[in-house]
């Protein structure tokens, strides 16, 4: 009788500990998954809250080639919605067909990024927006002051009633200025956000939203692949800067902005949202496919000098690599349809 009581007590104690462990594990898993959930709201600065008229104006400016010195290149020339808001090229082509040094980053989900450009030199979308317009290599446009025959952007826009009205509606009393041009473009860009991908549907509970290979790939992503060290959170980026050991190490990257040794050749961790749509990959377009990208990380990078300590040889099996690619593809949703604006001509 005594032995039976002891056995019963031991059993109950074991059951108690097991259930406690199960609850703990379940909550850890839930917490881990929650980090990938979409934030409740799109971040926006208090001095430039998103409104319909601001989005509409920003969209007109974004698609208007008159924003360039040649009147031939718009923001959308490189940030093409049909190509994942990028251009499908290894590196961008700018003013006068000049091939530039870095690839065109997608503008998808830039609203969630604290720093803009590959080297993070702009601390907001408003600060970023004017950079490519004024850059001699990119859109080569003078914004503020007409110089000889070269009409400034403000003068060009001010000559058109359609733009005068649109600016007044979006930013009453503020006029057509560098600041309002930047604010309008930033407002439009904040609306370019990813849609629910198979992965998002899966974390919301749709068990069959991801195939088995993608599910195995998720485990590799978080485990042996070590990808999550840099690609984490809803936007699959730490918003940080890393030298990932590409073959061509000639670009100083973030080091040009912050003279700290670890930043030599370091670039911003890009989002993985809609990554299947944004080939080629890396800041210099070094890889054409996601398979090539996974191979790069599997061998621990090519150039070892100043390599991020997060990058190590992975020794992934062929199946683990193909699973990882399947998982990456599961981060791509059906893009929101976009309609082109009719631009003012008078």
């Amino acid at each position: 009788m005594k032995l039976t009581t002891i056995a019963r007590d031991v059993t109950y104690t074991c059951l108690f500990f097991m259930s406690t462990l199960m609850i703990t594990n379940a909550s850890v898993a839930a917490t881990d998954i929650n980090k990938y959930l979409r934030p409740a709201e799109i971040p926006q600065p208090s001095n430039n809250l998103i409104t319909e008229s601001r989005i509409e104006l920003g969209k007109m400016l974004f698609f208007d080639p008159r924003l360039s010195g040649s009147n031939w290149i718009s923001c959308a020339t490189c940030h093409n919605p049909a190509l994942g808001w990028s251009d499908g090229l290894p590196t961008a082509i700018g003013h006068g067909q000049k091939v530039l040094g870095r690839s065109t980053p997608t503008i998808l989900n830039t609203a969630y990024q604290p720093l803009q450009f590959w080297d993070g030199r702009a601390r907001s979308l408003e600060k970023q927006a004017l950079g490519p317009i004024e850059s001699a290599g990119e859109m080569a446009q003078s914004i503020g002051k007409s110089e000889g025959k070269l009409q400034s952007l403000i003068d060009e826009l001010s000559a058109l009633k359609g733009y005068r009205d649109a600016f007044e509606k979006a930013y009453p009393g503020e006029g057509i200025t560098k600041k309002t041009i930047a604010k309008a473009i930033a407002s439009f860009e904040r609306t370019i956000v990813s849609t629910d991908s198979p992965f998002d549907l899966w974390i919301k509970g749709e068990k069959h939203a991801m195939n088995d290979a993608a599910l195995r790939g998720f485990k590799v992503f978080e485990g042996k692949g070590n990808c999550v060290k840099c690609h984490n959170g809803f936007n699959f980026t730490d918003n940080g800067f890393h030298n990932i050991g590409l073959k061509d190490a000639s670009d100083a990257g973030r080091y040009a902005i912050r003279k700290v040794k670890i930043l030599i050749g370091a670039f911003k961790t890009p989002t993985l949202r809609d990554v299947a749509l944004t080939a080629p990959y890396m800041h210099n377009g070094a890889y054409k496919t996601l398979e090539e990208v996974v191979d790069h990380y599997d061998r621990g990078g090519v150039t070892k000098e100043n390599l991020s300590p997060n990058i190590t040889k992975l020794n992934l099996t062929a199946r683990e690599k193909s699973d990882l690619v399947e998982f990456l593809k599961s981060l791509t949703g059906a893009p929101n349809p976009i309609t082109y604006p009719v631009l003012p001509t008078e």
Binding site: L115, G240, F241, H242, I262, L263
Partner: peptide
């Protein structure tokens, strides 16, 4: 003081 890897 900043972190070079995580500028925020």
């Amino acid at each position: 003081v900043e972190c070079a890897i995580h500028p925020e």
